[in-house]
Simulated assay, not measured.
Amino acid sequence: MERCAWAKSDLDKQYHDQEWGKPHHEDAALFELLILETMQAGLSWSTILAKRENYRAALEGFDPVKIQYYDQTKIEELLLNPGLVRNKLKMYSIPKNAAAFLAVQKEYGSFDAYLWSFVGYQTIVNFYEEGEKTPIKTALSEKIAKDMKKKGFSFIGPVTCYAFLQAAGLINDHESACRFK
């Protein structure tokens, strides 16, 4: 097997091979993944990957400093954008999460320092066989999601948080036979 079984489309394969499970330490990349994961909740990751460039354009390159000030008028504009997931609750979480992200940066020096402290600054590597079910949440994702909510983040429960941890490379869940693990 060349890669994990879930990576079927060309877009999925590119994301899988170049990003997923690889440690991300740049705050800008972590913020982008956080926003994309909150948009993905309840949808396929392929759907979000296909809309990623639309999000980059609509959200000014995922700039949390600008996004934190998005008001109802801006949110309504985003909700009319057919290139985005037009879910009102998810859309309203974007500026709230930008503000919380910036507050965490200020408190910890970087979002990276905050997030990676939960795993002792080391990627957790799991070894799942092909077809074996990876968890959708863990005690770690429950702990981080709870802390993030306490810090003002929204639309980030334990399942979304686990997917975020995988995307950001804090957890490496590549299947054991995957050459990208």
Rank of each mutant, 00 (worst) to 15 (best):
C4I: 07
C4K: 01
A5Q: 12
W6R: 04
A7V: 08
D10R: 12
D12P: 03
Q14H: 14
H16P: 04
Q18N: 15
G21Q: 01
G21M: 03
K22W: 08
L30E: 01
E32G: 08
E37Q: 04
E37V: 07
T38G: 04
M39P: 00
M39F: 05
M39R: 02
L43W: 03
W45V: 03
W45Y: 06
S46A: 12
S46W: 00
T47Y: 06
E53V: 10
R56F: 10
L59Y: 06
F62L: 08
F62M: 08
D63T: 14
D63G: 13
V65I: 14
V65N: 12
K66G: 11
I67S: 06
Q68R: 15
Q68H: 12
Q68E: 15
Q68V: 14
Q68K: 15
Y69N: 14
D71Q: 13
K74A: 14
I75R: 10
I75L: 15
L79P: 04
L80C: 14
G83D: 07
V85S: 03
L89A: 13
K90L: 02
I94N: 02
P95D: 07
N97R: 01
N97E: 04
A99F: 06
F101S: 04
F101N: 04
L102F: 08
Q105F: 05
K106C: 10
Y108Q: 11
D112I: 07
L115D: 03
W116F: 11
S117G: 13
G120Y: 11
Y121Q: 15
Q122S: 15
Q122Y: 09
T123E: 06
F127S: 13
Y128M: 05
Y128Q: 02
E130T: 10
K133P: 02
T134C: 11
I136E: 03
I136M: 09
K137W: 08
T138Q: 09
L140P: 01
E142C: 13
K146F: 12
D147Q: 11
M148N: 00
M148L: 15
G152V: 06
G152L: 04
S154A: 14
P158D: 12
V159L: 05
T160E: 00
T160R: 00
T160W: 00
A163K: 00
A167S: 05
A168T: 08
N172R: 05
H174W: 05
H174V: 07
H174R: 04
H174F: 08
S176F: 08
S176P: 01
A177S: 13
A177T: 13
R179C: 10
